[in-house]
């Protein structure tokens, strides 16, 4: 039924076209007398048609028999009208196992990376500690060497000039020796 209806309406709208079809017929059958009359009538009709806007029927996509691939919404997307979206529950065993294995793999990776990171940091810390210990050791040995050299110098003999100097310096530093001048305060 639908196609026939559409045809009639189309014919109505496309009035002048139909007349165009008739035009040559009339010209063939009779002389050019009828031609101009028809033309005037058609013009009037046309004018009327132009003035009055025709009521257009709206078609649904199913009525038009459009091929499915040529539709506005793609074939795969089916949107039910007026329906709530709703939640999609995961209750079957397979889906749950899949999610669980995914999550576990992710967690496993995270823990692994954490551990490797911790190990690396630990290695760095250990290396720093060793370096610090080494430096400390070096400093200590240096100090020991200086001490040793000083001791050796002192043992060489008290008569040496150098030794006197050292003695003087040490006495000044440690307040061990007697002061040369004693400060006195006098009360008048």
């Amino acid at each position: 039924m639908a196609p026939s209806k559409t045809r009639t309406i189309k014919n109505k709208n496309a009035g002048p076209k139909k007349t165009d079809d008739e035009k040559p017929k009339s010209s063939k059958s009779s002389a050019g007398r009828k031609g101009p009359v028809n033309a005037t009538q058609l013009k009037e009709k046309n004018r009327a048609l132009l003035l009055k806007k025709p009521k257009r029927k709206t078609y649904t996509d199913t009525e038009l028999n459009i091929p499915k691939l040529n539709m506005i919404t793609p074939v795969g997307v089916v949107k039910p009208k007026g329906k709530k979206k709703g939640k999609v529950f995961v209750d079957d065993k397979e889906a749950m196992t899949t999610i669980m294995s995914l999550v576990q793999a992710e967690k496993e990776g995270q823990i692994e990376s954490k551990m490797t990171k911790a190990r690396q940091l630990e290695e760095i810390r250990q290396a720093r500690k060793e370096e610090a210990a080494k430096k400390e050791e070096e400093r200590k040995t240096k100090l020991e060497n200086v001490k040793e050299s000083l001791r050796k110098k002192r043992k060489r003999g008290p008569a040496d000039k150098d030794d006197d100097n050292v003695k003087g310096a040490s006495s000044a530093g440690t307040k061990a020796g007697k002061p040369s001048k004693r400060k006195s305060v006098s009360f008048a």
Binding site: V88, F89, V90, M100, V103
Partner: peptide
């Protein structure tokens, strides 16, 4: 009700 996919993932994590 059963859990949605998002909820299941959060729980398993």
């Amino acid at each position: 009700r059963p859990l949605t996919e998002q909820e299941t993932q959060t729980l398993f994590k």
